[in-house]
Structure formats: C-alpha cells, structure tokens
Design a protein around this nucleic acid. Structure first.
Length: 436
RNA sequence: GUGGGUAUAGCUCAGCUGGUUAGAGCGCCUGGUUGUGGUCCAGGAGGCCGAGGGUUCGAGUCCCUCUACUCACCCCA
C-alpha cells in the first residue's frame, strides 16, 4: 500500500481547515442574515436524475457506477440539479423557496491549478420569483458577503442573456454552434483584448469589418450605467428592450441599497453554462484578477421546470469556495492560526496531573478553549509546543501554585508572566482578546 | 482531452559531460538550561534519489512505461 490520495483529490490539514471553517462560518452567517436556510442532499443520486439535464460533455465528467443493488448511480457534479430534484420530489414547500447549500461535488475532469475532482461548491438560490427585486437580492448578497469577508476591492459585473440574444440577432449570427462560439469568444473579450478578439471572431464566424468595430464600441464601458443602457437600447432596438428595462430596475434597486459602487454593467459577461435565461453576473477581485471569477451566477427560468415538470423561475449564485479561499489567503485577510486553543495547560509533573486536568476543565467551563498537554514532558518542550501552534497563553500549576491555589499565566507573545487566581486568569484571557 | 515541464530528507532545493559511503538551508530530536518558548552554541536522527523495466563493468544522472504534480490551450468553481 502506498499512502497516496487519488488524482485531483486532496487532504485539508488542520491549519488550513481552521482558516477555511472560519470563512465558511462567515458565509453561512451572511446567507442566514438574508433569511436563507441550509439544505443538505445526498452525495449519490440516480444517474438518471443527473443525466440528460446537462450537456454531453458534462456527462463524461460524472463519477458513475452500479451500487450493490445494481442501481445506476452517480456522484453529484453540481448543486443545482439536486435542488431541482428536491423541488420536484417534495410537495408543499413554501414558495418562494430559498436555500443555500455548501457541499462537495465531484467532476472527473483533468485537474489543474485550483481545479480538483472533488471540491466544495457553495450555492444560494431563490426559486419561484422572476422580477427585479429577486435579481437585485442576489447581487446584494454577493456584495454583502465580500464585505463581510473583509474584501474591499471587488466588482460584480452584470450582463443579461437577453441582451446577448439581441446582439446575436443584430450581428446576423445563426445556428446553435455559431451562437455558442460567439458567446464563448465574446466572454473572453476582456481577457484577450480587442485585437485577438477580432482574429478569433473572424476565424470562427467570418465576421469582420465595421460590424465588429460597432460591436466593440457597443461593448465598451464608458459612461454611466444609464448611458450604457441607453446606447444599447438605441442600437439593438425592440428585441433588447425588455432585458434592458429589467437591468435598469435592478441597478436602481442596488443603488438604493447603497452598493452601486461595486456593481457594474458589463455586457460581455456570457457565462459558460447554457441554461441561463436572464441576468448573469461574475465577480472579480481588483488585486487578484488572475484568479478569475470568485462568485458568479444568474437567472435560469427553465432548468428546474425541465426536471420537475412545473414552472419554476429561479436565480442563484455559485461561490468558488476554494478559489476565494486562496485569494483571501494571498491577500492576507485570513487569520492564521494553527490551533483553536486560547490556552495551553502545561503539565508540570505527573503528580500535578489532577490539578492540570482540573484547571483545563475550569477554563473550558469559563468558555476558554483550553488544550492540555497530555504528558509531563519537559517544560521547555511544552512551551515550545505552545509557541509552534501559536497558542496565545500558557498556564502552569507547580508546587508553589498548588500550595497557594493559584496558577502561572504566561502571555506568550510578550513573555510576561503572572501568578493569578483562576478567576483573575480567566478575566485576563477574556479581556486579552484571546477568548471565544 | 492536446502540447510542454518537473519528481532527490518533513519543507525549499544543490548534485558539473554516467564513476566510491547522496549534500545544503529550514524544520525535527537530544543536550548546554531538572520551574519556562522565540535568540545562540554543540551533537543527532532522517533518503530502495516517485514506481517499474531497459542500456551499461557501473545509473540520482541516459532510454521506455506508469503514477503524481505543474504551465499553456480548452473548460469551469
């Protein structure tokens, strides 16, 4: 046996999990602050539930096998299809239905940097409403979330599938493949620049000249949001009127909530997934543009209906938990700790074990995370342990302390040491910011 | 999926055109200091050189296969 994880799968060691769990706690808090409850669904689904709702390419990415009862099963590859299954399977759900779900998903694709075969996906969705209030709620959750995580420089770029459809008509593009090629290339415009865009669009679709120049001018982001929307309306005409009107409403609501600085229109946002039908958005970090979108989603009014047979307009956000985590780590806005403990209770000698165990328990009773060193190792070793794990305090009960009913509390960072009663030590730790 | 790169100690890496017992820094362990960490000093442990096969008198070094990682494209989270 060789100790080895499968390709594309990985371990998350305690130091990383401590920081990641803290980030996830913030994410959950933000969702619940918006009134969204959690949902949990099985990792395994009938393959028939997952198949057919996704493209042929995605079918190749399924981990699929026969279980012991010869059932054709597969690991979920996203959280949207399970949501749709839940909507179809459980009657009597209060509408509009909201939920968030943070759970691993599996895709058997080739791993790359920041891309794994098992990864944590985080989705928040609102089902049953198709209007500007619902659209803006998603954008506001995204902004609120990044603010809560301590991110300052970010922009949520908002587009609309209806505008893209109008552009396709305006350009005279016809056929499914041509449309997909256009969307994929247009989506990359910001990344590859206008020159390479022209080359690509000419190669794929044979488009060039004035029409493409006009398109590039139309896709520009100069001017205010309403100016941009007006420009699009004039050029694209009646076909784009409804989506543009929706965006105008959405931007007004976002502005009213005080988040207009972070939300910008960007008609080049296309999104890879084909099931989007309305507003779509991606989020980029100012200082970490090479990370790509960390938070994205859109409106998909047909998908759930196609699975459940009932009409379910829906809108959602997917969060790239691992990608966002890496970015936050690189930006240095995640707490770096190696242990959840506030205090290391040092075991002075084996004869003091009773006092040490008792002390650790009392500290925990007071709400302080206390770690007891499990052996009466040399004091040097125990203090070094606290140092390496960045535990802020150590507490020792030796001969003197046992006799007087006190303890030695040491502040590791400064090296200061005090002989205190338990009560005073608790107060000191809690006021020192190391508590909770 | 296509094309390139990498794989040597826990970590980051040296190891020249194949040539004795494979090195460094950091980390780890022990001691200097049997009531105290971060600094310093001394000593020590730890490697079938990713796995398997081949060429050779001889392979960490060259060739092939596999596995894993990585960069670009593709696609996404």
């Amino acid at each position: 046996m060789k100790a080895q994880t499968l390709r594309g799968f990985r371990d998350y060691l305690p130091e990383e999990m401590l920081a990641k769990d803290q980030m996830l706690a913030t994410i959950r808090r933000v969702f619940e602050l918006h009134g969204y409850p959690p949902l949990m669904t099985p990792a395994l689904e009938y393959a028939s539930v997952l198949l057919g709702k996704i493209g042929d390419e995605e079918e190749m990415l399924l981990y699929r096998f026969l279980d012991h009862g010869e059932r054709d099963v597969a690991l979920r590859y996203d959280l949207t299809v399970p949501l749709a299954r839940v909507m179809a399977q459980h009657g009597g759900l209060q509408m509009p239905f909201r939920r968030y779900q943070i759970a691993p998903v599996w895709r058997a694709e080739k791993p790359a940097k920041g891309r794994f075969r098992e990864f944590l996906q985080c989705d928040v969705d609102l089902v049953g409403v198709d209007n500007a209030v619902a659209d803006s709620e998603m954008l506001l959750i995204g902004c609120f979330l990044l603010d809560a995580l301590g991110v300052t420089g970010y922009s949520l770029r908002v587009g609309h599938r209806g505008i893209l459809a109008a552009m396709i008509a305006w350009l005279g593009i016809e056929g499914g493949k041509a449309e997909r090629d256009f969307l994929r290339t247009f989506d990359k415009l910001k990344k590859i620049g206008p020159d390479r865009f022209k080359v690509e669009i000419d190669r794929l679709l044979g488009l060039g000249g004035e029409k493409v120049d006009a398109l590039l001018a139309l896709a520009g982001d100069s001017g205010s949001t309403s100016e941009i929307l007006g420009r699009l309306g004039e050029e694209l005409g009646e076909e784009a009127a409804e989506p543009l009107g929706r965006l105008e409403e959405v931007f007004a609501l976002v502005d009213g909530a005080g988040y207009s600085d972070h939300v910008k229109i960007d008609v080049t946002i296309a999104r890879g997934l084909s099931y989007y039908t309305g507003i779509i958005y991606e989020t980029f970090l100012d200082d970490m543009s090479d990370y790509g979108s960390v938070l994205s989603g859109g409106r998909y009014d047909q998908l759930i209906g196609s699975l459940s047979g009932k009409e379910f307009p829906a809108i959602g956000i997917s969060l790239g938990v691992d990608r966002l985590f890496s970015a936050l780590k690189e930006m240095g806005i995640l707490a770096q700790k190696s242990s959840p403990a506030d205090v290391l209770v040092v075991q002075f000698s084996e004869s003091k074990a009773r006092s040490s165990v008792q002390l650790a328990q009392r500290l925990r009773d007071a709400g302080i995370s206390a770690l007891l060193y499990p052996t009466a190792a040399k004091l040097k070793k125990q203090f070094q342990f606290a140092n390496n794990l960045q535990i802020p305090y150590t507490a020792v009960i030796g001969e003197e302390e046992e006799r007087t009913g006190t303890l030695q509390l040491k502040v590791m960072e400064s090296g200061e040491q005090f002989q205190l009663s338990l009560e005073d030590a608790v107060k000191r730790i809690l006021s020192g910011g190391g508590g909770q």
